[in-house]
Nucleic acid binder design. Structure first.
Length: 473
RNA sequence: GGAGAGGUGGCUGAGUGGUCGAAAGCGGCUUCCUGCUAAGAAGUUGUACGGUCAAAAGCUGUACCGAGAGUUCGAAUCUCUCCCUCUCCGCCA
């Protein structure tokens, strides 16, 4: 692990040096880099861009794990445009004929009608072809992930993520327990009854657990509200358009819970409803940036993570999270990204939890993101850092899908804005991290100072010996 | 869930088979006028994808009046299906 990190870190430094050196010493390299950056900052998955700069786009996507080909898309797009042209030409003729028929004498009119009918048949055929190709283009286009930003390090998987910095001192605990060992005596978690009520990966929070979960929600919402994020509480069920807009669909259908009778999905993250708040809208530039924070429960099927984190409260089908979402001008998104990540880090610092920030490599980055920082909190019981927040800059990728635009102050043409989001934070994991980091030798847990007011003044969680805590079968 | 009404441009709202991308008003923008403001006058004002152009402007083609299908040479307008909104009733935290 450590070896890997050192390698990754030096790798990253090397990468950055190379980029800088190239930029400032080699004119042709500079040209390449800046044109690549232009490609990336101006438009993600823009069809015109894919058409005109196919190779650059492909090169950028190649850095992602699995690799993505845009060749088929370019080909289908070409035939779609041809079909579109033919269809339009036929429509034009049809429109002409309509005018002629209106002006014609009755005998002449019948002849024209015959031609018009024939044209209409051909229009129908041309339209069928056009529609089919249209759908195919859309399908291929929607399946393409965002292009990683030039500043994202290369690498196929999480082993190539690079640590940016770390904060806090790891607590010195003798034989630290994991949170699932600490929880039941404190009467915080009831894992067995959670399974009884739903299925595995569902947990009941009891008493102090329920209280602290709620305290964390309130603390985080208050925290971000006071830092300029306006609070929203959105629907937890969303329609398909929302899921397409933020990029969960169409690629990852199996990852989410869906209400079969209603075409509605349980939100996997507040990102989905909150980003879609302004879908199909044009926002005046002076209204930007918009900063929202939102609490929602989140539902994920965790398909493909069988065997991972089967114990404990780390990986649940239902979990709570406070999310930060930003809408901003394209030129500000990088800056907003840094600030958003700082806001998430500030929560960890307020809670006195040691963490580190890593930048995800191109192969590990999420589908919609062009750049992503993960915050990882220290778990003494597990003796490792675990993800607790993921802060992404999507560029205009989601904005394109969700049709989110802004109207610039100067010229009137509406343009796609940029979206960002990050967890601030995942509440269940925060609770687990507090348990592990603040555990005392006697099995009690110290409540972080900022949380005490939210816990009704309770400063220590103590083990209890309730009979009801023991499962009775 | 039952009954009724309705979905038109940034907004209000007209339009019941062609001359409608769509009246009128409001708002927005430009210009003029006026010490300033207010008021007034004239003009202009949707989106997407193409073509033309070095590019922009301009010009030009096609589509779009909730979505889809149908009738017709021709649909905002007629028919059908679906979605959504509103009002009343019922139910309910």
């Amino acid at each position: 692990m450590d070896v890997c990190l050192i390698f990754a870190a030096s790798f990253s430094a090397f990468y950055i040096i190379v980029v800088f050196a190239d930029e400032f010493t080699n004119p042709s390299a500079f040209k390449y880099v800046s044109s690549l950056q232009k490609v990336q900052s101006e438009a993600m998955i823009d069809l015109r861009l894919i058409r005109e700069k196919t190779e650059e786009v492909e090169k950028a996507l190649e850095r992602r794990n699995g690799g993505f080909s845009v060749k088929e898309l370019v080909e289908v797009d070409a035939s779609q445009r041809k079909a579109q042209g033919e269809w339009e030409a036929l429509n034009q003729r049809s429109n002409q004929l309509q005018g002629l028929i209106k002006a014609a004498q009755s005998d002449e009119r019948e002849t024209l009608k015959v031609e018009a009918k024939d044209v209409n048949v051909r229009i129908k055929e041309a339209n069928a072809l056009r529609t089919e190709l249209d759908a195919r283009v859309k399908e291929l286009q929607m399946a393409l992930p965002n292009m990683p930003d030039a500043s994202v390090p290369d690498g196929p998987d999480e082993n190539y993520n690079v640590e940016i910095h770390a904060w806090g001192e790891k607590p010195n605990i003798e034989n630290p327990k994991e949170h699932w060992e600490l929880g039941p005596p404190l009467r915080i978690f009831d894992f067995e009854r959670g399974v009884k009520i739903a299925e595995s990966r569902f947990t009941v929070l009891m008493e102090m657990g329920a209280k602290m979960e709620r305290a964390l929600m309130n603390f985080m919402l208050d925290f971000h509200s006071s830092r300029g994020y306006s609070e929203v509480f959105p629907p937890i069920l969303v329609n398909k358009q929302c899921m397409l807009g933020t990029g969960q669909l169409p690629k990852f259908e199996g990852d989410f819970y869906k209400c079969a009778d209603d075409e509605l999905y349980l939100v996997p993250t507040a990102e989905v409803p909150v980003t879609n708040l302004y879908r199909d809208e044009v926002i005046a530039a002076d209204q930007l940036p918009i900063h929202h924070c939102a609490y929602t429960p989140n539902f994920r099927r965790e398909a493909g993570s069988a065997g991972k984190d089967t114990r404990g409260y780390i990986r649940q089908h239902q979990f709570n999270k406070v999310e930060l979402v930003k809408f901003c001008l394209p030129e500000n998104s990088e800056d907003e990204h840094e600030k958003l990540t700082r806001d998430a880090e500030a929560v960890l610092e307020a809670l006195e939890l040691p963490y580190r920030r890593i930048i995800l490599c191109a192969g590990d980055i999420g589908f919609s993101a062009k750049k992503c920082f993960d915050l990882e909190v220290w778990f003494p019981g597990q003796n490792k850092y675990r993800e607790i927040s993921s802060c992404s800059n999507f560029g205009d990728f989601q904005a394109r899908r969700a049709n989110l635009k802004y109207k610039p102050a100067d010229d009137g043409k509406a343009r796609f804005l940029h979206t960002l989001n990050g967890s601030g934070l995942a509440i269940g994991r925060t609770l687990a991290a507090i348990l592990e980091n603040n555990q005392q030798p006697d099995g009690s847990v110290r409540v972080p100072a900022v949380l005490i007011p939210y816990m009704g003044g309770i400063s220590v969680l103590r083990p209890r010996n309730d009979k009801i805590a023991e499962a009775v079968h």
